[in-house]
Amino acid sequence: MSDIGADIRQQSLISNADPQDFLALLKPRVMSLVVFTALVGLVMAPGTIHPVIGAIAIFAIAVGGGASGALNMWYDRDIDAVMKRTANRPIPGGRVSAGEALAFGLFLSVFSVMVLGLATNWVAGGLLAFTIFFYVVIYSMLLKRRTAQNIVIGGAAGALPPVVGWAAVTGDVTLAPMVLFAIIFLWTPPHFWALALVKCEDYGRAGVPMLPNVAGEAATRRQILLYTLILVPVAFAPVVLGFGGLAYAVAATLGGAAMILFALQILLAKGTDFTRACWRMFGGSILYLFALFAALLVEWGVAKFGVLTFIRGLWS
């Protein structure tokens, strides 16, 4: 019997993928943040949307976010292979071929934009298309390997989901969703630079010019504090504009104080305390962003349904 299969296997013409490998291409953890922030944008928007259409809009935004993750993994497969953190992703791990990931990402991109456009409106569909374009082309292809400001500018892609969610209801973009955009946009640099400080060897090996590799550790520590000091007051904008209430103000105050503390710890820490301070900022910043958006969601739920109905709804 001939073994022409061996050659074909070597050329990766036989797929070795499990369904969960394709799921991993969608970066589920990033997707969960996209879903949550888009949901807040959607419920905060004035106007009405049928709950089923709203759920479909969130699903489409989630799939669009996942599609951009798949396309990012397709483009970054060479650097993912040399970084410890990403070496076991489906493409460098040899379970999904680059072509499969590209086709999967492109299909889901078109699918998500079409579904969102048809189910809600084309402003939302267009914004989702722009989000995917920005993440894949502007961030992954143009910025990530060229400039230390990669995640500062690229952060716009991660900040757009609440704007898309808002537009799905209203068909336009106003100041309120742009404030939510600004919060996530300013949150991104301290969050990712805290990770980059710990993983700078990994990024250096892959040739990705993250700020600690280019400007040095001391400059990154200062930049983290600087962005945190801009972020914390901006996070109070919903209170000033009237769409953030008491719970939001408490979250912004306590969370903001914690963020400044984390940034100061990174600035001043030495030795193993420094690594611990970076991880504290990385994890704490996720909690901070979650607390801000959760406060908006809870205030919206309480205002719309009353306290008991809202809690019962969460429970069931």
């Binding site: 019997m1 299969g5 070795n16 993928a17």
Partner: peptide
């Protein structure tokens, strides 16, 4: 070879294909 049987998938490959 007298007869070309083509590619024979392993049991694992068959299982993965079925799951896909």
């Amino acid at each position: 070879p007298e007869k070309n049987d083509g590619i024979r998938l392993t049991e694992e490959e068959k299982a993965r294909r079925a799951r896909r």
